[in-house]
Design a binder for these strands. Structure first.
Lengths: 247, 247
DNA sequence: GGAAAATGTACATATATGTGAATTTATCTG
DNA sequence: CAGATAAATTCACATATATGTACATTTTCC
């Protein structure tokens, strides 16, 4: 069950991240199609907690820097080492596609860092974006780092759906694809989950964290180049990853 | 009316900002005294929206960097000029007390930047902290920047409460205190709102924003020095504020 | 290796909560 | 400066929603 008012808080935050200016109660209510009274309650709650204020009289609400202060405190723990951002930055620059660092979240894989392609037609992903762990190159690069028991535990929770023609729709299909990935030396996906999207990924274990790097873009553009993109990813990781032990 | 589940989202965020490590459903539920089932729904909602993930299998949830990404987008708009942080940083260093930048939010004043005193006994304030605009030095330094009509509009919404012995409990009392502040050259408060707390504040208009700076601490320590602290604030603002026009 | 304890998940139901309509307050407009 | 229009608040009630209970799964400990 989705908790509506919890989701609404996030919606409001994203709304402000997008419009980047104060908004009045009426504007917010209209934007989301929420009743004024409900919007009033929600804004009052956020204000009371110190997350919204009114920068100028009658010019509406805007988030306080408390969001930032909290987010900083949360993110200063186990930050990704700086070279991982360099990694996807370089990969995106060299391939012209979107590159990301991905982490597990149950049956899903979450994008925890993203450098977007600058192309007009591109894979549009943001930090926090989630995709099925079994039906994507990035996700399978995570699964490769699991033990058989851990994978089985994940499989039990997966709802296998035919997202595209090549989506693996059974445990055996996923396991086969994982075996192929190992012999191939990298993970790939051709519209397994998102239409027209292809990508290459490799596992990226960092200390005891199980991450992966992925480069993805429109099938017609990246498709034929997937093997070389995969090789490029591997080379770039080799170049940037600190050599001293497993850092 | 307070929207409980909206507040809970903020509570969870603050919980993670504090403990700074992943937490399982059970831990979170126990910490807040929430039912497991409700906690489950809330965590599922936050995960689905891309704000929580599971860094390690079975090690619980932690916020994704999406919080930070959003907070950054929100805060890159009209950031405070860097010299204001320098200002409160210097003030806190020189006085040994907590210094803050404050902005209006209806009948309240919100702390939008804070440098805390390092003393064991100190004014504990965080970004987002709110105090009544009429019963605090920082708040009155904001009110001084309002027109009479704007102030009247605020007064109508204030619930006058006797927070302490010297709290102004009528419009006239507030207006009198404002007049005194003008002739005195700064705003002050001696436990008007918080017990044992005293402070000095002055208005800090920046472009068209109405802000104030305040230095506050325990009455026994800062009380006798309020006039000199106020003078120090004024001098420091003069020193740091860019001279070119009204920046 | 097997039983017990802890944790995570699903669902029906009573109740806390969101909302429509009414009221008050602010802002335009001629 | 009225009178009109729009926005912000309040409040009582019906309903969407949080939770108690039951079940499944995983982990711990002997």
């Amino acid at each position: 069950m989705i908790v509506r008012q919890a989701a609404n808080v996030l919606e409001i935050m994203e709304f402000f991240a997008q419009v980047k200016k104060p908004a009045t109660l009426a504007e917010i209510a209209d934007h989301f199609g929420w009743p004024r009274s409900s919007t009033f309650n929600l804004l009052a709650t956020l204000s009371e907690k110190g997350y919204l204020y009114e920068p100028r009289p009658r010019a509406g609400f805007y988030p306080t820097p408390r969001w930032l202060a909290m987010a900083r405190m949360i993110s200063e723990v186990e930050p990704l080492p700086p070279w991982t951002h360099q990694l996807i930055s370089d990969l995106s620059a060299e391939t012209g596609e979107t590159a990301s660092i991905v982490a597990p979240a149950g049956v899903m894989a979450v994008f925890i860092d993203v450098v977007e392609s600058k192309a007009a037609i591109r894979y549009f992903a943001t930090i926090g974006h989630r995709v099925p762990i079994h039906a994507t190159a990035s996700g399978r690069a995570l699964l490769l780092q699991y033990s058989q028991e851990e994978r089985d535990s994940v499989y039990r929770k997966i709802e296998f759906k035919q997202y595209g023609p090549s989506t693996p729709i059974s445990i055996e299909a996923v396991e086969t694809e994982l075996r192929n990935s190992i012999s191939r030396g990298y993970c790939q996906s051709f519209a397994d989950y998102s239409r027209d999207l292809a990508g290459a990924a490799i596992p990226l274990p960092i200390s005891d964290r199980r991450l992966s790097v992925v480069v993805a873009g429109p099938e017609f553009r990246i498709g034929p180049k997937v093997p070389e993109v995969a090789a490029l990813i591997a080379r770039t990781v080799d170049r940037l990853r600190p050599k001293t032990t497993a850092a």
